[in-house]
Design a protein around this nucleic acid. Sequence first.
DNA 1: AACGAAGTCAACCGCTAATTT
DNA 2: GAAATTAGCGGTTGACTTCGT
Length: 226
Amino acid sequence: MNTKSHTQYYMHMAANKNEKPIKRYVNKGAWTTEEDQKLAEYIEIHGAKRWKAVAVKAGLNRCEKSCRLRWLNYLRPNIKRGKFTDQEEDLIIRLHRLLGNRWSLIAGRLPGRTDNDIKNYWNSHLCKKIKHERTSSSSVTQEIGSQISIEHADISKERSYSKGSEGDSMDNSFNVNEFFNFSNEGSSNLEWISKFLELDDDLVGISENYSVPFLGEVDKFNVFYS
DNA sequence: AACGAAGTCAACCGCTAATTT
DNA sequence: GAAATTAGCGGTTGACTTCGT
């Protein structure tokens, strides 16, 4: 569904650095079916890389970022659309509890879902749902909730640190990115990770004395494998 | 039926990390 | 090793839809 209206602006574009940039009209806003078709056809032949070249050579008056995003979030094969299942919803909540707003990592555990989808779904549905559940639960649970929020803040901070200088801010060797990188594994880990995350609720209490960001994950990991 | 508020979600933006030259 | 380019991420925006009055 194309929702945003079309606008155009000028931009200097070239397919590569050897080509002299030409001042072109660049479309912004909703993609048309014609543009989708052009992009899909080009990528089918040349692959989803070199987005600057894609934008120019596919005959699309779009910037490279726009092309990449359209492909990843909409045109890419095996994109799952429509309502999130209860299992998916539960998994997102649990993963978010562990990872915070690391949408691409969360999306990596939900085959066919994009980070943008999950982020939108979280912001429009799950965020409120969780808020509601927290306010209607006991004071003890609320306390745990605030503990989780503190952990989230730490994880977010850690994310920006780890981007800049890996390892500087954290002495323990646990790497959450590696832990949640299953690219070398088989197709779906939905089941085992769901089982793993089931432990999460029970383990929140154990994390009361955490002082180091991510130590929570380390302990949960160790408990799971011990 | 009309209208404003709230919700949804595709797309954009700014930034950083990774890769290439 | 430095600079330039490319890829990827999360936050935010805004057009459109739905809901409530």
